[in-house]
């Protein structure tokens, strides 16, 4: 028994974790917790253009609280723009975005954004980067967040001595320390090597399951989208081209037949679309 516990603790988020019944129950409990802490998002008639180029056209989406949604598509399909609009970093030309039914206009504490670059302050130590925007009384939270990403031992070093993957883990800790109800991820793993990517995917999935926020991930890696998300949305020329639910139970095996079939299906769909622009 104790051996099993140890096993679970050491590698809970990995795809090869056991199918133990107790483990499943634990996950289900967490799923229930989620619905209370994640944000529900409604997007209505959203359009955005830069000059005469329409990046998004009359987009409508409903995102369930606590769900993990991946947005994929060719570069220039509008996926990053959509994420920035959802966050409130940019404003739409037409249409509205609602957080839990309330219209959302500018970035606030409910949502946190992870960029492709870590965007750590080079002149602050790792721990002070995580403390950014916290009040003094909340400083102990920063160390906890670093523990969650497994970097508490590097709290006092400068970001410049960390590897790319470690920097993104610090950026993740910095996002999570504010206990966001919505985490927006703009290709945060795009610049990492394959092995680090898998580790980061596991970490993000584990923390999402533990903390119950709504997650929206923009990625160009179809397999990553299918492996992590409950739902994959394929954008093409500013419109939803494909919107499929991924019902594969977690923890997911990377070798899962259904998972690979879905990834292939989405990839084929992208490849059959003509490249414009």
């Amino acid at each position: 028994m104790s051996n099993q516990n140890l096993n679970i603790r050491k590698e809970p988020p990995t795809y090869q974790a056991s199918n133990d019944v107790k483990h499943k129950m634990k996950v289900e409990q967490k799923v229930n917790q989620k619905s209370t802490s994640g944000i529900a998002i409604q997007i209505e008639n959203l359009s955005k253009s830069f000059g005469d180029i329409n990046v998004l056209e009359n987009l409508n989406l409903d995102i369930k609280p606590g769900s993990f949604v991946a947005i994929v598509g060719r570069s220039g399909c509008g996926k990053s723009t959509l994420l920035r609009l959802i966050s409130g970093l940019d404003q739409a030309n037409v249409g509205s975005i609602y957080y839990d039914g309330n219209q959302h206009n500018s970035i606030n504490g409910d949502a946190r954004f992870m960029f492709q670059e870590s965007r750590l302050l080079p002149w602050q130590s790792v721990i002070n980067n995580v403390r950014l925007g916290l009040k003094k009384a909340e400083f102990p939270k920063a160390l906890n967040a670093l523990k969650q990403v497994g970097l508490e031992a590097r709290a006092d070093v400068w970001p410049s001595v960390l590897s790319g993957g470690q920097r993104q883990r610090v950026a993740l800790a910095r996002s999570l320390v504010h206990e966001p109800r919505l985490l927006l991820l703009d290709e945060p793993l795009g610049a990492l090597d394959a092995l680090t990517r898998i580790e980061m995917q596991n970490l993000i999935e584990r923390l999402w399951r533990e903390l119950g926020f709504t997650a929206i991930l923009v990625t160009h890696d179809i397999f990553e989208a299918v492996a992590l998300a409950d739902r994959v949305i394929l954008l093409n020329e500013g419109k939803v081209d494909l919107d499929i639910n991924i019902d594969i139970p977690r923890p997911r095996q990377r070798s899962d037949v259904e998972l690979n079939r879905l990834a292939e299906e989405i990839l084929q769909r992208i490849l059959t679309r003509p490249v414009t622009s």
């Binding site: 966050s87 970093l89 970035i107 954004f113 960029f115 670059e117 925007g133």
Partner: peptide, 16 residues
């Protein structure tokens, strides 16, 4: 500008 945008995400005021 990327760091400044990050600062906006973290609700930093003008002084911060």
């Amino acid at each position: 500008p990327q760091l400044l945008e990050m600062g906006r995400v973290y609700d930093l005021n003008h002084w911060q």
